[in-house]
Simulated scan of single mutants.
Amino acid sequence: MDATIYHNPKCSTSRKALDKLREAGVEPDIVKYVNEPYTREQLTTMISDAGLTVREAARKREALYKELDLDARSDDELLTEMVANPILVERPFVVTDKGTRLARPIDRLDEIL
């Protein structure tokens, strides 16, 4: 099975998702999205394919979210900031042959394994 995880090694949920993939016998491509930021098209597609809204994919607990007052901004502006500041994207996104999921909670991975 082909799989890609958009990974932040500092995030425990992201590390657990990577472990779960490997336990399932899947060695995913690992994209450290903080170093290799999303394109707008890529992020838009993953959010849509995962069945989420832009707001659901935003990491609202991040200090930068509040600093930029993103609650008061449009979805388009929020998406622009998420592309410019990938730390604002919830993690991890996982893409397999069976679909795309935001692995929060981690059991969401079962849907695409």
Rank of each mutant, 00 (worst) to 15 (best):
M1N: 11
M1T: 09
M1P: 09
D2P: 13
T4D: 02
T4W: 09
I5R: 03
Y6F: 15
H7L: 08
N8R: 02
P9C: 03
P9M: 06
C11L: 02
S12Q: 01
T13I: 03
T13H: 03
T13E: 02
T13K: 06
S14I: 09
S14K: 10
S14N: 10
R15I: 06
K16C: 00
A17G: 03
A17S: 10
L18N: 05
L18Q: 05
R22F: 03
E23Q: 14
V26G: 01
V26Y: 08
E27P: 09
E27V: 15
E27D: 14
P28S: 12
D29K: 15
D29I: 11
V31R: 15
V31T: 14
V31M: 05
K32S: 13
Y33P: 11
V34C: 00
V34M: 12
E36L: 09
P37K: 10
Y38M: 12
Y38Q: 06
Y38V: 04
R40Y: 12
Q42E: 15
T44G: 01
I47T: 11
S48W: 01
S48N: 06
S48D: 04
D49R: 15
A50P: 09
G51S: 02
R55V: 07
A57R: 09
A58T: 12
A58C: 07
R59W: 04
K60W: 14
R61L: 00
A63Y: 00
Y65S: 00
Y65M: 00
Y65V: 03
K66A: 05
K66H: 02
E67N: 10
L68F: 08
L68P: 07
L68Y: 06
D69E: 13
D71R: 09
A72T: 07
R73T: 09
S74V: 06
S74H: 02
D75F: 07
D76I: 08
D76T: 13
E77N: 09
E77V: 10
L78K: 00
L79G: 02
L79K: 05
T80G: 07
E81Y: 05
M82K: 04
M82C: 06
M82T: 02
M82S: 03
V83W: 06
A84E: 08
P86L: 07
P86G: 10
I87N: 02
I87W: 00
I87D: 00
I87V: 12
R91E: 03
V94N: 02
V94Y: 00
V95Y: 06
V95E: 13
V95Q: 14
T96A: 06
D97G: 15
D97E: 15
L102Y: 02
A103Q: 09
R104W: 13
P105L: 04
D107M: 12
L109N: 01
D110S: 14
E111Q: 13
E111N: 11
E111T: 12
I112Y: 08
